[in-house]
Design a protein around this nucleic acid. Sequence first.
DNA 1: CCCGCGATTCGCT
DNA 2: GCGAATCGCGGGA
Length: 200
Amino acid sequence: MILPESYYLNNDVVALSRDLLGKYLFTRFDGQITGGYIVETEAYNGVVDKASHAYGNRLTHRTQTMYMQGGVAYVYLCYGIHEMLNIVSSVEGRPQAILIRAINPTVGLDIMQYRRNMAVIKPTITSGPGSVAKALGISRKINAISLQSDTLWLEDQGLSFTDDEVAAVPRVGVDYAGDDALLPYRFYVKGNKFVSKPNK
DNA sequence: CCCGCGATTCGCT
DNA sequence: GCGAATCGCGGGA
């Protein structure tokens, strides 16, 4: 079933980040569907999280999407090159988001391979946040799009993982966040070959 | 207005 | 393993 709007209104962005493992993520552009199930996420806990774009209630043109009601996509450009897909959660005015770092692809592999410019399909096709967005055709053009749209949506297909199968570790690339860089806000499915950095 | 740097990835060594 | 690519944000002047 398609995850309903109410699913994204949860105020606990860390719990939601954990729960997203095993949920299916799909895009459809020009009738072409691509997607798979989520195997790696990171929670960004709004105004009190030094690693978050919205830390200190920072409200700018870029971050305003994070302040929308949960259930929309926050897509931004990083390093001038890579687009990053986040799932906005919680109520309007509470800027929480979950970075999708890796999926296990199941649908539209040939399309993703073409978008990624890969001669041969390898696990890196959807490993890492920039790779996920590129494989799924996601760019800032769909920033703030609803997850109830027919372009981007999530589904629960009954797949889930036990706590034994999930690792909770510090986030990647947020050393600038001081103490908050140590928080175990990154979740991934142990042993899944699409996880971006299994050993950290 | 200017400048440093980032929730990264890829290719070359 | 290292460094380039590439651009907009955000802080300070």
